[in-house]
Simulated assay, not measured.
Amino acid sequence: MTATAKVTKTVWNMDDGTSVICTGHGTPYADRYGKQSSPTCGHTYTRQGRYAVTATSYWTVAWAGIGQSGNIPLDFSRTTNITVGESQVLSQ
């Protein structure tokens, strides 16, 4: 018997009225990106505050064995709280 699971998408509920749908693996952050937006999946908050962010990943498990096969859809959700603030630095 074999089973292969693949994520098809992740939906982020940003708790500011915005949902972001991401496909693929995304782009890991690197310092060289600075303030530019993610090329594959990102979000920018426009207000300070505390947000309950929920990520839901949608998976498909393809299985085969004993002469049969099929697909099983699965989804998993997790929520965490984040605080968004602003920092400004002035220098001469």
Rank of each mutant, 00 (worst) to 15 (best):
V7E: 11
D15W: 06
R78N: 05
L74S: 03
T56R: 04
R50Y: 00
A64H: 10
Q48S: 15
T56H: 03
G24P: 06
K6I: 07
G67T: 03
D75R: 11
A52H: 13
T60V: 15
D31Q: 05
H43W: 11
G42A: 12
P73V: 03
T46F: 04
Y45G: 08
T44I: 11
A62T: 15
A5Y: 09
S57D: 13
A55W: 03
D16H: 02
R47L: 05
T54Y: 06
G42T: 03
D15T: 03
D16K: 07
T46C: 04
A62F: 13
A30I: 11
N71M: 13
T2G: 05
N13I: 00
Y58C: 02
T54S: 06
R47E: 11
H25R: 11
Y33I: 01
S38L: 04
V11K: 09
K35W: 05
S57E: 10
V89G: 05
C22K: 10
I21N: 13
V84M: 01
T80Y: 08
S38Q: 07
T40N: 12
I21V: 15
T60R: 14
T27A: 11
Y33Q: 12
Q68D: 12
T44M: 08
G70F: 10
R47S: 14
G42M: 09
T79D: 00
I66Y: 14
D31R: 09
G26Q: 03
R47G: 01
T23H: 14
N81F: 01
R47M: 02
I72T: 14
P28L: 07
T4K: 11
M1F: 09
T4D: 13
I72F: 10
V7N: 12
W63S: 03
Y33G: 01
Q36A: 13
M1H: 06
T83L: 03
K6G: 08
Y45A: 10
V53W: 01
S87N: 10
T80L: 06
T60F: 07
I66N: 14
V20Y: 03
T4V: 11
Q88L: 11
T8E: 12
A52N: 14
D16S: 13
S57F: 05
G70L: 07
N13P: 05
V84R: 00
K6W: 09
S57A: 09
K9I: 04
C41D: 04
I82L: 01
T54N: 01
S91A: 02
A62C: 09
A55F: 01
N13T: 10
T60N: 14
S87I: 08
R47D: 10
K6H: 11
S57V: 11
T8N: 06
S77R: 06
V89L: 07
R47A: 11
Q68Y: 12
D15G: 04
N81Y: 02
G70I: 12
D15M: 00
G42S: 07
T44G: 10
S69L: 02
V84L: 00
W12C: 02
I21P: 02
Q68S: 10
V61G: 03
P39T: 05
P73F: 08
T80H: 05
Q48H: 07
A64D: 13
G70A: 10
A5M: 14
I66D: 15
L74Y: 04
I72G: 05
N81V: 05
G85V: 00
D75Y: 02
H25D: 13
D16F: 02
I66K: 08
Q92D: 07
A5G: 10
T4C: 00
K6S: 14
S38N: 15
M1I: 08
T23L: 15
